[in-house]
Design a protein around this nucleic acid. Structure first.
Lengths: 226, 226
DNA sequence: GGGGGTGATATTGGATACATTATCCAAATG
DNA sequence: CATTTGGATAATGTATCCAATATCACCCCC
């Protein structure tokens, strides 16, 4: 086996890793409702594994706040109040601004190209009306910049915060007006990064976030919301 | 059973909760060296449980970055480089400053009294040369202010960041000069909070943190460090 | 209608057993 | 001598089983 072939071999995931990835995807996709119980047996059957890797995946999700645990009663999908939302976005503001500042200091053409590519992916998905792909591309877009800061703990914290609200992304993207706002804002963000204008970059990111908050604020404040 | 008695009844922890608490305490106390493997069998025997709750505790600690996991090879205690330390402290600066600002906006006599009490506990422990108690009281001191911000996610994030470096607290507290610096700085912090002077509070907290960083920077940069 | 009790069932917590992977060491091979 | 192979052992991943706890349905009594 040549060195290249060894590098290409992809080790199969452990069952716990598989279950964790699937649960994470399902929660973010809104497949489970906030407050919905997650039954070990049911999920174990669905995934074709025993309860053990399901329980282990739960411990991770619980640590991230995606899932709420009560001894002897099990786990439920965490729900998000307006207060939670505001806290999450404020924390993201602080942390993403820091990442942006550091990323601009170490500006790179590779990051810029990646941001442009994923911004373009967002536009393609938006034009196709594919909200799932748009959500994924949007995430890639933002995490290009976060990763560029080379602060792994910061990136992980933001990912967890991001996950906490991601199930609600569809609310925001449901409106064509919002989608085109997103595209315009991404373009501005890319340009500010390209220009190395950290003040503008941070301001544009803040504004971008604020628009999402405004949409979700209304939604979470609505009495008909589950 | 009366209502009061019901409130006083303390449910025994699950084995996983017990193991998690013990592992957390041991890691923070420096009972395990950075990079040291954590053997499921050994720990299960030590705690008198099966491997299952040990593994579940590991998943939590792994999520928090306290423990590093590699499939099929197990878990080890995370180690901390100078780069890690600087990132942790920078993140704490951002987040603790925010907590301080919010806490001052909602200033309360209860919080002030609690801060004073734990600052006093720090001094008592310092005078007695009890570094473990000093560490605990110091933690209480700082988390009084963090809790006062009533931002649970922020508090949790800071706790995780705090835990990442807490095993090194003894390095800083080993010097009597550093200990008396801590006491003076705590007094300043309490006074700034009492005066509602958020600018001064943040500046004093930054300085307080910077002193710890300086001590640990030297330690982590030292080639004789394990 | 409300409260309490009982039994059946659902679910969780965790112990034990089995399967798989990694590591180590000795023997064999080039 | 260096490298490879094979076997034993250590350790991990997870399935299965057992015990404990929670929930639900039903019944009786006030």
């Amino acid at each position: 086996m040549s060195e290249n072939a060894a590098k290409e071999f992809k080790r199969p995931p452990t069952a716990q890793a598989f279950v964790l990835a699937e649960l994470r995807r399902a929660i973010i996709a809104g497949d489970f409702l906030p407050g919905e119980p997650l039954r070990q047996n049911t999920l174990a059957e669905r995934f074709g594994v025993s309860r053990v890797p399901v329980r282990e995946a739960f411990k991770v999700l619980e640590s991230e706040g995606q899932v709420v645990y009560e001894p002897h009663r099990g786990h439920k999908v965490a729900s998000l109040s307006l207060t939670d939302l505001l806290e999450v976005y404020r924390l993201r503001q602080l942390l993403e601004s820091e990442a942006a500042r550091v990323a601009v200091e170490n500006r790179s053409g590779t990051v810029l190209a990646s941001m442009r590519a994923s911004a373009s992916d967002v536009e393609v998905a938006s034009a196709a009306g594919d909200l799932l792909k748009m959500t994924e591309a949007n995430r890639r877009f933002h995490f290009e910049l976060l990763a560029a800061a080379k602060m792994p703990r910061l990136e992980r914290i933001v990912r967890v915060l991001w996950d906490a609200t991601e199930a609600y992304r569809f609310v925001y993207y449901g409106s064509e007006h919002n989608r085109s706002t997103v595209e315009r804002e991404h373009a501005g963000i890319v340009q500010a990064y390209a220009d190395g204008d950290v003040g503008l970059l941070v301001a544009l990111m803040d504004e971008h976030r604020e628009h999402a908050v405004d949409a979700l604020r209304t939604f979470l404040d609505s009495p008909s919301r589950p």
